[in-house]
Computed example of a mutant assay.
Amino acid sequence: MIEIDNVHKSFGELEVIKGVSLQVQKGEVVSIIGGSGSGKSTLLMCINGLESIKSGSIRVDGTEVHAKSTDINKLRQRIGIVFQQWNAFPHLTVLENVMLAPRTVLGKSKAEAEALAVKQLTHVGLGDKLKVFPGKLSGGQQQRMAIARALAMSPDYMLFDEATSALDPQLVGEVLDTMRMLAEDGMTMILVTHEIRFARDVSDRVAFFRNGLVHEIGTPDQVIGNPQRPETADFLRSIN
């Protein structure tokens, strides 16, 4: 379980997260929606330990992410994250890119890492691209490779930060299909997304962020289908 308790985060004097509390249960899919600058992506960075917090706490299965005693690199092995764009190593094949972290971080043998990489690349529909170099992939295929790379670390949790926002519209569907498959597999996921229809389809809960706070949270039918806060309704109208 991921437990976020009264978290505050500032960049200089600008407070971007203003007391967020949220719990994500094992096997749950939670989508975070909201306008730019509302603190959504920053929260994911804080969960993964890529950003510090000013106050509050974030615990992953009881481990305090920001405690000095926490081995953050070991913890990150359990929390996969996929960004808007993932810069692959252009001189390595797709297979070699996905093998890299299991070998260097997990200490897997070449054979073990290759088996993991082939399994996950096949899982995301790239089993026929193993020997291809990343520059030959479409944007959607590159994002699916990024997902496979994260999955090759056998994470307990997956974080997606606007994973489709940098893609051409015709490529978005293939990445969303991969994310939907992970949700159906029971992966615990937190998605920052503007794909409202997708969020409604796959999420157990949806949180609307506004001005660094969870402004409204509930089931997709509640938050997207029948929002109770006028700001939530205004946001949904603005992107439809």
Rank of each mutant, 00 (worst) to 15 (best):
D61K: 13
G225K: 12
G107S: 14
F83W: 04
L75E: 03
M158S: 01
T193Y: 02
I79R: 02
L100T: 11
S57V: 04
Q143C: 09
G135A: 13
D61Q: 12
S238C: 09
E15M: 12
Q142W: 02
L50P: 02
K68H: 03
A67M: 04
Q120I: 07
A117N: 05
A117E: 08
G62N: 07
E114Q: 15
A166Q: 04
E96M: 07
T63Q: 14
E96D: 14
V65H: 07
I58K: 05
I53G: 09
R76T: 07
I217H: 04
D221P: 00
F235V: 04
M189P: 00
F208W: 01
F133C: 07
K108R: 13
L137T: 07
R210A: 14
T63R: 13
L159P: 00
S52I: 10
V24L: 05
E195T: 12
T122Q: 14
N97Q: 03
T63V: 15
S138N: 06
Q141N: 06
K18W: 04
H91I: 02
G80P: 00
T104D: 12
E3C: 06
S10W: 09
P134T: 11
E114C: 08
I217K: 10
D5T: 15
M153I: 08
V82Q: 02
L236D: 05
A113I: 09
I47K: 11
A146E: 04
G35I: 05
L106V: 07
K26G: 03
K129C: 04
A207H: 02
E184W: 01
L50W: 05
L121H: 05
V118G: 05
I196N: 03
V172W: 02
F83E: 07
D201F: 06
E162H: 00
T178A: 15
T178K: 03
F209M: 14
V20P: 02
L50C: 08
K26Q: 15
S21L: 11
E15H: 11
V7M: 10
A150Q: 08
G225N: 11
V94I: 03
Q222N: 06
L167A: 05
L176N: 07
S154T: 11
D128V: 03
M45Y: 15
A183T: 03
S41N: 07
I4F: 10
P90D: 11
L130P: 01
K40C: 10
M99N: 06
D128K: 13
V7H: 09
A88G: 02
L213Q: 13
C46V: 10
S21M: 11
S38M: 08
H215I: 01
G125F: 02
G125S: 09
T178M: 01
K18R: 15
G49S: 14
Q228D: 08
G34M: 08
L116D: 15
H8R: 15
T93L: 00
T219M: 05
Q84E: 02
L176E: 04
V175F: 01
N48C: 09
A207T: 09
L14I: 14
